[in-house]
Structures are given as C-alpha cells and as structure tokens.
C-alpha cells in the first residue's frame, strides 16, 4: 500500500516541483521510477521502449507542470499519464505496422519468476497459475497487475484505467473467480477453500 507518509512526501515534492525545483522532481523520479518502468515494460513488452516512455513522461510532465497544477495523488497521476501515453504509442505503432496485428489494449504478460506461491508443494501449480494468469483478458490482467503487483487501491486503479470503481471490482473478481474455478479447483480439491479475498468485495 502506498503509505500515507509516502503520499504526503510525494505531494510535497510535487509542490516544490511546481515552484521549479528540479531536485524535488528528481526525488519523484527516484521514488516512482521502478513502478513506472515495470508497468511500461509490461505494457510495451520491451525494456528499451519502457525506458524511453518513462523519460518522455517525465519531460512532458515537467513541461506541462503549470497547467497540471496541484495534485492530490501524485503516484496514480503519473501512472495514468504513462498509460495514456503508451496507449497512444501503441495506436500509432498499429498504424505503422499494418502487417502486425497489434491490439490497442495493452497486453500484460506475467513470467513464472514473478509469481510466488507460498506453499509450493506442487510444482505444476506454479506453472499452471502463470499460464492461467496470462490467459486472462487483457483488462483483467492489467487490473490484477495494478492491484497485486503495484498494490494500488481500487479507486486508483479506476482512475488509471479510466473506468469506474465498480468495473475494477468486477474485473478483479472475474479474474480471481476464473483462477479459482479453472483447473485449480480440480487440482486442489478441498472443501475448505477460504475465499478470504472475496471479503473485499462484500
């Protein structure tokens, strides 16, 4: 979770940035770089392009800082702008590479090394889970990514993905239900499933 102090710290840096302080802007860059870079490389599937995208994002935000003005939530703002920028980039890529069918929805790909299953009793669960995650519809994957990878709140995910709050809940619930209902159920046939996470939706 983005802690309160972190949020406030970011807000302070942003206020200083508005006053033209590049040091403060550098602090924001340091604090958010990893998350933004990861998100960009997930959406673009390329580390070099991700690096460029984050660079472009920061230059753009700096140039337009006066028209942006005060920000309540700095981190979600940067994610939102980055996502929009990448969508536009993918659209123009699609326009250029006629032969390559590119979906306008960014498609996230999870790798097996990124997923930790606490009780790794069954090797196959790990592999299966990765495959299942990657089979999810693009938007569900993105919501899952932002929720459990970036630890964003539903409200922030809604802002970033430009959908309403309820849609985020639905996307994540659908994804989790799918994961639970698919082969995993058969794999771990147990009557004692505790759907702890479901509590969040009630």
């Amino acid at each position: 979770m983005e802690s309160r102090s972190e949020t406030e710290q970011l807000r302070q840096w942003w206020t200083d940035t508005l006053a033209g302080n590049t040091e403060a802007f550098n602090d924001i860059h340091k604090a958010l770089f990893d998350g933004l870079y990861y998100y960009a490389s997930k959406l673009l599937n390329d580390n070099g392009l991700a690096d460029d995208a984050v660079q472009e994002l920061f230059v753009k935000v700096w140039t337009k800082r006066t028209s942006i003005g005060n920000l309540e939530k700095v981190k979600p703002y940067f994610f939102t702008v980055l996502r929009r920028q990448i969508l536009n980039q993918l659209r123009s890529l699609k326009l250029r590479e006629l032969k390559i069918k590119m979906s306008i929805e960014p498609d996230i790909c999870f790798s097996i090394e990124e997923i930790i299953v606490e009780k790794e009793t069954e090797e196959s669960l790990h592999t299966k889970l990765t495959a299942l995650l990657n089979e999810l519809p693009a938007r569900q994957k993105e919501a899952i990514y932002l929720r459990y990878y970036e630890d964003m709140e539903y409200k922030q995910i809604a802002e970033i993905m430009n959908v309403n709050y309820q849609s985020v809940l639905n996307l994540i619930q659908k994804a989790l239900n799918k994961l639970r209902s698919e082969q995993l159920l058969a794999l771990f046939l147990s009557a004692m499933f505790i759907y702890k996470d479901l509590g969040r939706f009630e």
Binding site: F33, Y37, I115, V117, L129, L176, F188
Partner: peptide, 26 residues
C-alpha cells in the same frame, strides 16, 4: 499485495530495477 487460491497465498515478486537505469533515465 497477495490473493489466495485454496490454501495458497499468491503474490508477485518484484525484481529491483538496477539503480543505474534510474540514474541514466533521470
């Protein structure tokens, strides 16, 4: 964050981006 499937807690591992990448980008 994490979610649960059955008794398994599932979370994502985030590899640290090397600081040089951040510095260079900045």
């Amino acid at each position: 964050g994490f979610f649960k499937i059955g008794n398994n807690k599932i979370e994502f591992r985030k590899e640290a981006v090397s600081p040089e990448i951040q510095t260079e980008n900045w």
